[in-house]
């Protein structure tokens, strides 16, 4: 029986919440940081586990795709936006998309861990990026503490259109980049998105960036489909 191994970041949580896993499926949160306090396994073990997989198995990685949050989840001292996220009467600094695209591409291409994982395994490798942004995020909610060292109540979430534009651009860049290193991008489940492209609240975890178990279940269906037969429609569609 072929195996499915999912190695990823904190977004593996949605898959774990989705319910019982099928036989041969394992989901592990890899924390590659030295002295890690969270996660299931470290980098060395993750590489070892990926090397154990056979050619009939399937490795799914959840690693890239968080840059949009790192740079754009919270308000910046100097507000910025991509042009498509700008209201006609807004006066924030516009960052040309070509520059942001190159920034994201360079960031993705510099990830050596992803390449090592791919190099160590003989099986097909897919990749899932984090879910789409949530349209409504209340900066004053007690549910949100801090993000990357910044108190959310102090700086606030950046406007939803700007977050969505960054996520879309990062997805475009990853969809183009991943195949160049032999990894298949597995698209977010389209039924989890609103008409505008945000994460449907029904699939949102009670925090700023993560999805819930219902999303995880939809995502698992995509993973199983990828594992069974990587249909073209799954490849970054």
């Amino acid at each position: 029986m072929s195996r499915i191994l999912v190695l990823g970041d904190s977004h593996t949580g949605a898959l774990k919440e989705a319910g019982p896993l099928g036989a041969g499926t394992e989901i592990l949160w890899v924390n590659a940081k030295p002295g890690r306090v969270s996660g299931d396994i470290g980098a060395v073990d993750a590489l070892a586990r990926s090397a154990e997989l056979g050619s009939e198995d399937c490795l799914v990685l959840m690693r890239l795709g968080t840059l949009h949050n790192i740079i754009g989840l919270l308000n910046h001292d100097i507000a910025f936006a991509l042009v498509d996220a700008l209201d006609p009467d807004e006066t924030v600094e516009v960052i040309p998309e070509a520059i942001m695209r190159e920034y994201i591409a360079e960031h993705a291409a510099s990830d050596q861990f992803l390449r090592k994982m791919k190099a160590r395994t003989r099986c097909r490798v897919g990749h899932i990026m984090p879910p789409a942004p949530k349209k409504t995020l209340d900066s004053t909610s007690r549910a949100f503490g801090a993000y990357r060292g910044q108190r959310i109540a102090d700086v606030g979430f950046s406007p939803a259109p700007r977050r969505l534009a960054l996520w879309r651009l990062e997805k475009l860049v990853l969809d183009a980049f991943l195949p160049t290193i032999g990894i298949v991008p597995i698209a977010p489940p389209p039924e989890t998105l609103t008409g505008e492209g945000y994460l449907d609240p029904a699939y949102a975890a009670p925090d700023a960036t993560h999805a819930n178990g219902a999303y995880g279940a939809r995502l698992m269906a995509r993973i199983l489909a990828f594992a069974a037969e990587p249909a073209p429609l799954l490849r970054g569609s």
Binding site: G72, H76, I78, F80, E93, P96, A98, I99, Y103, E106
Partner: peptide, 14 residues
């Protein structure tokens, strides 16, 4: 100078 959210070497390149 370009937006500080972008790395300096990338800004220079642009």
């Amino acid at each position: 100078p370009g937006h500080p959210v972008l790395p300096e070497d990338l800004r220079r390149k642009h």
